[in-house]
Design a protein around this nucleic acid. Sequence first.
DNA 1: TTTTAATTCTATATTAAAGTAGTAATTAAA
DNA 2: TTTAATTACTACTTTAATATAGAATTAAAA
Lengths: 135, 135
Amino acid sequence: MKLSTTSQYAIRVMIFISQNSDIKIFHAKEISEKLSIPYKYLTKIMSKLVEANIITSTRGREGGYSIAKKSVNIKMIDLVKAVDDSLHDTTCVLGIGLCNENKKCALHDEWREPKESMLNMFCNTTLKDVSEEAS
Amino acid sequence: MKLSTTSQYAIRVMIFISQNSDIKIFHAKEISEKLSIPYKYLTKIMSKLVEANIITSTRGREGGYSIAKKSVNIKMIDLVKAVDDSLHDTTCVLGIGLCNENKKCALHDEWREPKESMLNMFCNTTLKDVSEEAS
DNA sequence: TTTTAATTCTATATTAAAGTAGTAATTAAA
DNA sequence: TTTAATTACTACTTTAATATAGAATTAAAA
């Protein structure tokens, strides 16, 4: 019961970028080393974030990645959706295709609250929220 | 963000058995067909439920599986723990090894409520609860 | 006692996610 | 204009979960 590694990486990368707003451009190598994410795996994820207009990239020498919009306008759910949408199949906890209010799986009612709590968290939490917290 | 297929199967099997209390012994073939779970995969899961004392098995002709205790005494969490404990790594949503109250990951506080809601559901819901519900 | 129907054990195959490798394209500095 | 530093693209490899196969074991019925 966890986010995909890909989603976890995407979130960690964006928090890192957001927390270092003094840096204007980030290189894949740098992010990879700082966050211990395999370089080639990271660049694949970055491309997805670029495609989703969360990150802008500059190619060539002196190029790199930078954040495309204010962190207050980036929700956690956006990050997950951009890379693999691993939250999408949280719909039915028993993985039953046809499970909805009319035709409920056995755990449907019990699962409602945890599911909503989880989805609400991802929908209502912004990158700014989590980047500002102390540790 | 979902339970493993193995856990989903285990839960569905136990609900099926619990909801058909008129049947005293279940055969792998029968369960497999009724729930569309691959036969050989199912028998592996059944063995784990047997090992966890949730199911008792009788070998040989006229053998089969039956429930080992009252459904009110079987919690959802027991089923998941018996087969692969895929709930265990719900601990840190960002998959960071060292994440706890003292050394929090960036999403730690936001994740607390969804996580607890989910764990509470699995810990407080019994097989009886979910087997009695209509659909 | 043999046969049959069941679970159990061990090994193998398939699939999807995670991770790696190499080359192409781009761009600024030298 | 060449070189160096960067991202982008395409293909491959590895790993873990899922799924399958076959033989061994068990025990009741015939």
